[in-house]
């Protein structure tokens, strides 16, 4: 069975056997499902057996922390092979083999279906859109008065908490996505933020988009304080909040162009904050001007 989904205006396809239980783990994709068959940025097909990968050549390993996903990248024949694990020291739970254009992928899952499926789709989505004015972000997004406000920061900084502080203390706020929203620069130059099927631990899978009001990087502090970032600071804040293989020249170039366009258009701030209502008020009053 083949199903197509559209996230941030990009269509992709998932192919798995009709009776595959993994379809049951794709509830978060439902709001993004689209009818018919059309041009897709990538197709990911589940395979039951792995090809002989003994000739794989290790390229790099990435892991942002001991409780973060580990991605081992290999070159295999003239394709990329990725071995995925949910934490730094966990065994490999999924394999992803993709052509170097990131258009046709095959994947195999050894367990942890939710982790495996979402990691495969997120990686493919991020790589296939890298040259399409699109960034798959690590952020929490709250909507107020028709504009999206992205909160960035390292894991554990309090991005979700800050979104909740806006929602609980400022009238008319709602959550758009709590972990992996998508930024896209439109042909009209407007930077919009889109919901996605990926939202971390918070089930918030909304097929909605709004123009971005501001991007706010969070840092834990003893006193609430906010300032507008310079362009290089803004660039650096956004840079560390999305991923991609920058040693792949075309990908690095595409990501840079989008990153530069985003920070040239959207005001970016640094918020030193406590997890309290005052931080939300200070932030809202500053960034909504």
């Amino acid at each position: 069975m083949r199903k197509e989904y559209e996230v941030a205006g990009h269509r992709f396809a998932v192919v798995m056997p009709d009776n595959e239980v993994a379809w049951n783990s794709m509830g978060s994709y439902k709001p993004f499902e689209v009818e018919g068959v059309s041009d897709c940025i990538f197709t990911a097909e589940l395979i039951e057996a792995m090809p002989d990968i003994t000739e794989k050549k290790r390229v790099t390993v990435s892991c942002a922390g001991s409780d973060q996903a580990r991605i081992e990248l290999y070159e295999y024949k003239d394709e990329w092979l990725m071995e995925l694990a949910p934490t730094m020291n966990a065994p490999v739970r999924a394999y992803l083999i993709t052509d170097k254009a990131f258009k046709n992928a095959r994947f195999r899952m050894l367990g942890s279906i939710w982790f495996s499926l979402n990691t495969v789709m997120m990686l493919m989505f991020a790589f296939a859109t890298a040259r399409k004015n699109t960034l798959l972000m690590h952020a929490s997004v709250t909507v107020k008065d028709g504009k999206g406000y992205l909160f960035l920061g390292k894991s554990g900084t309090g991005k979700s908490t800050h979104s909740q502080l806006w929602i609980n203390n400022i009238e008319g706020c709602e959550l758009l996505n709590d972990d992996n929203p998508v930024l896209r620069v439109g042909d009209d130059g407007v930077v919009r933020v889109y919901g996605s099927p990926w939202s971390g631990k918070t089930p918030c899978y909304r097929n909605l988009n709004v123009p971005v009001g501001a991007i706010v990087s969070l840092r834990q502090a003893k006193v609430n304080k906010i300032y507008r970032q310079s362009m290089p600071e803004s660039y650096a804040s956004v840079y560390v909040s999305f991923s991609g293989y920058r040693f792949i020249k075309e990908m690095a170039e595409g990501l840079h162009i989008t990153n530069a366009m985003v920070v040239s258009t959207v005001p970016c701030y640094m918020l030193d904050c406590l997890p309290n209502a005052e931080a939300a008020f200070l932030c809202y009053q500053t960034v909504s001007k």
Partner: peptide, 26 residues
């Protein structure tokens, strides 16, 4: 790699051999 940013430039780590990939300088 040196990349244009607004009216200025930013030097970013894009090689596999760079220890800290988040290091950059405008």
């Amino acid at each position: 790699t040196l990349r244009p940013l607004g009216q200025e430039y930013i030097l970013v780590a894009e090689g596999l051999d760079v220890a800290d990939a988040t290091r950059m300088i405008s």
